[in-house]
Lab assay of single mutants.
Amino acid sequence: MAAAAAAGAGPEMVRGQVFDVGPRYTNLSYIGEGAYGMVCSAYDNVNKVRVAIKKISPFEHQTYCQRTLREIKILLRFRHENIIGINDIIRAPTIEQMKDVYIVQDLMETDLYKLLKTQHLSNDHICYFLYQILRGLKYIHSANVLHRDLKPSNLLLNTTCDLKICDFGLARVADPDHDHTGFLTEYVATRWYRAPEIMLNSKGYTKSIDIWSVGCILAEMLSNRPIFPGKHYLDQLNHILGILGSPSQEDLNCIINLKARNYLLSLPHKNKVPWNRLFPNADSKALDLLDKMLTFNPHKRIEVEQALAHPYLEQYYDPSDEPIAEAPFKFDMELDDLPKEKLKELIFEETARFQPGYRS
């Protein structure tokens, strides 16, 4: 834990890192770190609560700039109880001085990944967590956004079992017609939660990839272990087919990539493993919904509104309290091709509203 900075004593240090967030945020305490930044909790002297502050230093890398800009653009436009918001952003007053960006968010005690390492969940908890994931996802999908990296560590939890989806750095506007060349190379989302079509096709992607990830998360809540822990690309596919069985001819016809289709045709026939054999203690309604989410063919996979209306979630289902976005989200430009200098300018502009004396 960093010592509390005395008023006016300059930035606090946390594990050798400068955290320049005073005077409003003090009493910093280390939480963890990701690929390009550290997260601390801090005391907000204005709202009198502890908050989470993520320090991001992305400006050396085009990919990190892209992810940072995506996350900020999306989260500043989203407003939903099951999606983490941005409360404040701290950065230098000029673009030349801006080396880091500090993002202030609600402090959540833990995440689903940490929880599943230590606790076996009751059916009631599984049901409530799944409902909140789908409630947040309904809003995301209504904005025409794909999260693309749903996994237990991106689901934040607090002691009252509130759940918030975080990390929109890989999110995209849904565009089933656009052929994202190089899709697989830039697709760094965790393999275990990846839909089979991501490994088999490169053309376009749809909201059904997020539903697949939610199915993987439900299976993990039922058993405290990942359902498809593939060691590499082909191993991942083999794990999936080992449980779902061989795809039907109709399902194979959806695979545009001939090499991928021929690979699947070359494999020995596998039978589907019954879900109640894998999860003998699970609620039968939970397994019915799991089956509809972990469907090989993305066109037959359940959609988020149908999933919310499934009998497993009937005690929570309330369409009048499951809000959607006001308007579909649009990125003005494809960020993939922009140089990091341009992305830095866009991050600077996007964060201006939090600067003292800002006038829109």
Rank of each mutant, 00 (worst) to 15 (best):
A3T: 12
A4F: 00
A6Q: 09
A6L: 13
A9D: 12
M13Y: 04
V14W: 10
R15D: 10
V18I: 10
Y25M: 01
T26A: 07
S29T: 05
Y30N: 14
G32H: 05
E33M: 00
G34K: 01
Y36D: 15
V39I: 10
V39P: 10
C40I: 13
D44F: 12
K48N: 15
V49M: 15
V49H: 09
V51Y: 12
A52F: 12
A52H: 04
I53P: 04
I53Q: 14
K55H: 13
I56W: 13
S57Y: 14
H61S: 09
H61Y: 14
Q62D: 09
Y64T: 15
C65M: 11
T68V: 12
E71I: 01
E71L: 06
I72W: 03
L76Y: 01
R77L: 15
F78Q: 12
H80P: 01
E81C: 10
I86H: 04
D88V: 12
I89D: 02
I90Q: 07
R91H: 13
R91F: 07
K99P: 10
K99R: 12
D100A: 14
V101N: 07
I103E: 09
Q105P: 00
D106Y: 14
L107F: 03
E109S: 06
T110H: 05
Y113R: 14
Y113C: 00
Y113H: 03
K114P: 08
L115F: 00
L116K: 08
K117S: 05
K117N: 15
T118K: 11
Q119E: 12
H120N: 14
H120G: 07
H125F: 05
H125N: 13
I126A: 06
I126G: 07
I126C: 05
C127Q: 02
L130M: 14
Y131R: 02
R135N: 03
L137D: 03
L137Y: 07
L137R: 08
L137C: 05
H141V: 11
H141K: 10
N144E: 02
L146C: 03
L146R: 10
H147Y: 11
R148P: 08
D149R: 08
L150K: 05
K151G: 02
P152W: 03
P152K: 02
S153V: 00
L157T: 04
N158W: 13
N158M: 10
T160W: 05
T160G: 08
T160F: 08
T160M: 03
D162M: 00
I165P: 00
I165C: 02
I165S: 00
F168H: 02
G169W: 01
G169K: 03
L170P: 02
V173P: 04
A174L: 02
A174S: 14
D175H: 05
D179W: 11
H180G: 12
H180K: 06
T181P: 10
T181Y: 05
Y187F: 14
Y187M: 01
V188N: 01
V188K: 04
A189D: 07
A189L: 12
W192K: 05
W192C: 14
Y193F: 15
R194T: 06
P196S: 09
E197T: 01
M199T: 00
M199F: 07
M199Q: 04
S202F: 07
K203C: 12
Y205I: 04
Y205C: 03
I209K: 08
I209T: 00
D210M: 04
D210Q: 08
W212I: 08
V214H: 04
C216V: 11
I217N: 15
I217S: 12
L218G: 10
A219C: 07
E220C: 04
E220W: 04
S223L: 08
I227G: 01
P229V: 09
G230C: 14
G230D: 14
Y233V: 07
Q236M: 10
L237S: 07
L237I: 09
L237H: 06
H239V: 05
L241V: 10
L241D: 09
G242L: 05
G242F: 07
S248T: 14
Q249M: 05
Q249Y: 06
E250L: 04
L252Y: 05
L252G: 08
L252D: 05
I255L: 13
I255K: 05
L258N: 01
R261A: 07
N262V: 04
N262G: 03
Y263A: 03
L265S: 05
S266V: 06
L267N: 01
H269A: 03
H269V: 06
N271T: 10
V273R: 00
N276F: 07
L278W: 04
P280M: 11
N281D: 00
S284K: 04
S284T: 14
K285I: 15
A286Y: 06
D288F: 05
D291I: 01
K292R: 09
K292G: 10
M293Y: 01
M293E: 01
L294S: 09
N297W: 01
P298C: 01
P298K: 01
K300N: 15
R301T: 05
I302A: 04
E303G: 08
E303N: 04
E303P: 00
V304K: 03
L308T: 05
Y312V: 01
Q315E: 07
S320R: 10
D321G: 00
A325G: 12
P328D: 00
P328L: 11
P328W: 03
K330C: 03
F331L: 15
F331S: 05
P339F: 02
P339C: 02
K340A: 06
K340H: 09
K342I: 15
L343G: 07
K344N: 14
E345Q: 07
E345M: 06
F348S: 07
E350T: 00
E350K: 14
Y358F: 14
S360T: 14
